[in-house]
């Protein structure tokens, strides 16, 4: 029997689900190997189906999502959170330091229709997560590698080194050393293939913290490059602001809010 797979969406932009859809023909090959029972963006809808593997995209940001993640955990054998929102709270966790009522009032014409939690949190804050795939968005390569490993019956081992390793393997020129660009590569988890540096741009840490980081040292380097404390904090508080390593670095750099981070 083929393993049953469900792909659930929480608060997110749907971009990580595209890592499945963008597979093209490979998606057909994948569907020979697994049975996708729930994938609203692609067609099949069965949100309460039991699954061997569930991929969760998005953060927990609404009261409804609090209940839904518990239910999915209960009906799932192996739960994988995919993307920045699911692994660290994502871009929307930037609101965690703000006054929710004030913001909702400023943004929406009819604020009373908006039901939201005070803070946006990663999936692992609510239920046991068996595997995290970081990235904004995740790549098809990450998804396929994880599925393949699970089909083999082994625990997937996603990349955890810094972007610099991959950047140097590719022979890219370091934008920090040659241009003084505030590149986040030294503290960011690889998986993107050093995409931004390969186009001469500084990494903005969309894959979250690498397994070993020294954010304080990189922040001091940014200071040396002439960045003001608030600018340094913003380098860490962009896509994965609630990831503990980045949140701490931003607070230490100063110049920014007392962001609320998950416990």
């Amino acid at each position: 029997m083929k393993p049953v797979v469900a792909i659930h969406k929480f608060t997110s932009c749907d971009g990580c689900q595209l890592a499945f859809l963008n597979l093209g023909e490979t998606l057909l090959e994948l569907s020979e190997l697994i049975d996708i029972v729930h994938f609203a963006e692609a067609g099949p809808v069965d949100p309460t189906a039991h699954a061997d593997i569930a991929f969760i995209e998005g953060s927990v940001s609404t009261p409804d999502e609090l209940a839904r993640i518990q239910q999915i955990r209960a009906q799932t054998r192996f739960l994988v959170s995919v993307g920045a929102c699911a692994t660290s709270g994502g871009l929307q966790a930037l609101r965690n330091g703000a006054n929710m009522e004030e913001w909702i009032g400023a943004v929406y014409a009819s604020p009373h229709y908006i039901e939201t939690l005070d803070i946006a949190t990663p999936i692992a804050e609510h239920v046991k997560v068996d595997l995290e795939l970081w990235g904004c968005p995740v790549t098809s390569r990450q998804i396929l590698a994880a599925v393949r490993d699970l089909l083999f019956g082994v625990t997937p081992a996603p990349a955890q080194d810094g972007v610099c390793m991959e950047c140097k393997r590719q022979g890219q020129i370091c934008v920090l050393v040659t241009k003084g660009a505030p590149c986040m590569g030294p503290v960011t988890r690889t998986g993107c293939g050093a995409l931004c540096p390969s186009f001469g741009r500084d990494c903005y840490a969309c894959f979250g913290p690498a397994q070993t980081t020294n954010c304080a040292a990189l922040a001091r380097r940014f200071e040396g490059l002439g960045l003001m404390p608030e600018a340094i904090a913003r380098r860490f508080l962009f896509i994965n602001s609630a990831a503990p390593a980045f949140a701490e670095a931003a607070q230490a750099a100063g110049g920014l809010t007392k962001a609320r981070t998950p416990k």
Partner: peptide, 14 residues
């Protein structure tokens, strides 16, 4: 030196 080192591996790559 550990306070300063990023453990990024650039020294070993080059």
């Amino acid at each position: 030196v550990a306070e300063r080192c990023l453990a990024c591996g650039n020294c070993t790559m080059v």
